[in-house]
Amino acid sequence: MDTTVKKDSPFIEITGELCKGCKLCIDVCPKGVIAISDQLNSSSYHPAYYVGADCTGCTLCFYACPEPAAIKVFKP
């Protein structure tokens, strides 16, 4: 879902299968660029996803997320 992101700007990758839908990343994101999906993942959670633009690479979502591998943050 973030294949259109320009790689010269910061972005995050959320692996929906590893997300438990706790919304903490959405709560802390200063830019409001994370949203919750309508779809269910295989664990029956509504996973978070990156809306695709305006991430600043601040990493707050990474540290707010309790899952070790659900969010990756890339900053050029």
């Binding site: 299968e17 590893l18 438990k20 839908g21 706790c22 919304k23 903490l24 664990s43 959670y45 540290y63 707010a64 997320c65 309790p66 899952e67 070790p68 591998a69 659900a70």
Partner: peptide, 13 residues
């Protein structure tokens, strides 16, 4: 690849 903790649990952090 996920923990056994509940959604939003502090242990993960």
């Amino acid at each position: 690849e996920t923990t056994h903790y509940c959604p939003g649990c502090g242990h993960g952090n």
